[in-house]
């Protein structure tokens, strides 16, 4: 059984049971380990990717439902790690252990695409990931900093 999916602009043929969650397709079949397993039940958000630009828990997306969609993972967030969110994350020393952050960044970048000037309430609603280290204060600050940087870029 082989299914064709598009991840970060690259077409892959995947030989896996059609019910296999995208999370495990990415990690174990395509070797893209940036997307993380945390809970498997759409609670923690460590596995967040974007499907057609919308943040989605990849542990809940079966392979069979993914033909024809565009999947973006942390590996495809930017060409060289310079998305304004990635820059802000480094500048503000946001990560602690860092395990959850790929998922947080994918949720936050989806938010900024739709909403370039998110309020705290917008962030609360869109970034529902669990960070056990408790980097939430800096996650919020990082999103605001990236929004500002994006705004400045667009003005130029």
């Amino acid at each position: 059984m082989s299914t064709t999916i598009t991840v970060n602009g690259v077409v892959h043929k995947v030989d896996a049971d059609p019910s296999t969650p995208l999370l495990w397709v990415l990690r174990d079949h395509l070797g893209m380990t940036g997307t993380k397993y945390g809970c498997g039940v759409a609670q923690c958000g460590a596995c967040t990717v974007q499907i057609d630009g919308v943040a989605a828990r990849s542990c809940q997306a079966p392979l069979e439902a993914l033909a024809g969609v565009k999947i973006t993972t942390i590996e495809g967030l930017s060409a060289d790690g310079n998305h304004p969110l990635q820059t802000a994350w480094v500048d503000l020393n946001v990560p602690q252990c860092g395990y959850c952050q790929a998922g947080v960044l994918m949720a936050a970048s989806a938010l900024l695409k739709d909403n370039p000037h998110p309020t705290d309430a917008d962030i609360d609603a869109a970034v529902t990931n669990i960070c056990r280290c408790g980097s939430y204060v800096r996650i919020r600050a990082g999103i605001h900093a990236a929004a500002k940087a994006l705004h400045a870029q667009h003005k130029v």
Binding site: G34, V94, P95, G98
Partner: peptide, 14 residues
Amino acid sequence: GKLNNAAIVRGQTQ
């Protein structure tokens, strides 16, 4: 900041 931040934000930390 942490030395491994740049790898973390790219999803490259092992």
